[in-house]
Amino acid sequence: MALEVVRAGVRTTVQDLGRPGFAHLGVPRSGAADAGALRLANRLAGNSIDAAGLEILLGGVRLRATRAVTLAVTGAPCQIMVGDRFCDPGLPLAVPAGALVTIGPAVAGLRVYLAVGGGITVPQVLGSRSTDTLSGLGPDPVRDGDVLPIGPVTALPPGVDIAPYPPPAGSLRLRVWLGPRDDWFTSSALATLFAAEYRVSAETDRVGARLTGPALTRAVEGELPSEGLVLGAIQVPADGQPLIFLADHPTTGGYPVVGVVDPGDVDLLGQARPGTPVSFINARR
């Protein structure tokens, strides 16, 4: 029982909710860049929320299941076809054995998520099946011709007509908790952070979303000894342009972290295309 990859697309990886608990050994958490979208896809496919599915950058994938399966597609909106039938995202799809599943290009957002009933059961590495693009742990990115094993179905898909979820936003307003190193920045830099509009740069990947906009000027010069990093940390390197850490972020870093994006808003960055305007609001207010 397996999912055959007819066409893998530009960058498709297996992702679950990552491997927390090993950061003290230098192991990143990894996991789905839009974890909420993967959790929803899993629920729709009748899986537990931490089952492994596919994270498909920009869509454009063809798959074939060797047996009848339930699929669910969430995240970036795209056209879905099962055989010659058009299907919708956000609901369980009954796919007959041998049918060709075509995920079209994402029309907005960055990452399409696909869950299959039973989950993708490639071997676990430190408790997770996620591909970590920073450290190389976990399975290799999916390639044309790969055959991905599927686990046994443990539950029926839920009886929903459709699970609505918002499309990727055209611009983001992210809640930010200042600190731990906001005192390394001038007060005008902090004012700029909450007043200026930044844009997601083209150098954005699973490690982090790089932003371009007004530089954040430091009040403290010199090097910061390396310290632990959390998901959503806004690190400010020497050029003053903020970098927001996503799923595959390193465990420690030596540039000051001016603030942390609220965990409830980090998924939005996992769907933000280069050029997307980003502004920040103070979460503590």
Binding site: P20, G21, A23, H24, R29, P225, S226, E227, G228, L229, V230, T251, T252
Partner: peptide
């Protein structure tokens, strides 16, 4: 996670 570093514990 409990992450020690040069001068900090996260």
């Amino acid at each position: 996670e409990i992450v020690p570093a040069a001068r900090t514990v996260l």
